[in-house]
């Protein structure tokens, strides 16, 4: 219909946009990027008490090409930062990233030469979840916030504005 991706969605396809956002939010497939202690809490969240499957996120894909969201759980060291950048670049649009835990968000309790916060490596982080390690309920709260953010998204084709 001749629409460029930068235009907001016109009124004819607005309900379609809402439907697509709802579908995207309710079946997010996380890419595994569990690094340290927060990864164990992420595994507990996928366990049977704090079930992540009821939000549609139990399928942890190993390959970044098959996933929508990357949960960076744990401390990012100097050697691992280029790996994170490569894996993030391999994910397909639309993609989101959740920085789980204090070390991924800000460097945490390690204020030294070796730890790098995630927002130095990735252009834009969507949700920061605080805690050391965050409780499974806190991670679920973060993921629900991400779902709300996706549902409000009026970018129909999912192309993020380039910075």
């Amino acid at each position: 219909m001749g629409m460029t991706p930068k235009e907001k969605s016109p009124f004819l396809v607005a309900p379609l946009g809402k439907l697509i956002n709802w579908m995207r939010a309710n079946s997010l497939w996380p890419a595994q990027f569990g690094l340290a202690c927060c990864a164990i809490e992420m595994m507990s969240t996928a366990g049977s008490r704090y079930d992540m499957a009821r939000f549609g996120m139990e399928v942890f894909r190993a390959s970044p090409r098959q996933s929508d969201v990357m949960i960076v759980a744990g401390r990012l060291s100097q050697k691992m930062a280029p790996v994170l950048e490569t894996v993030y670049d391999q994910m397909l649009e639309p993609k989101w990233i959740v920085a789980m835990g204090d070390c991924a968000s800000t460097g945490g309790i390690y204020n030294n030469y070796a730890v790098v916060p995630v927002d130095r490596v990735v252009p834009k982080v969507d949700v920061y979840v605080a805690g050391c390690p965050p409780r499974p309920e806190a991670l679920l709260n973060g993921l629900i916030l991400l779902q709300k953010k996706i549902k409000k998204d009026d970018n129909l084709f999912g192309w993020h504005e380039s910075t």
């Binding site: 690094l35 340290a36 401390r75 100097q78 050697k79 030469y113 070796a114």
Partner: peptide, 10 residues
Amino acid sequence: GYLHTGIEKE
């Protein structure tokens, strides 16, 4: 070395 955080120095 992919998880080195310099704990001993800290």
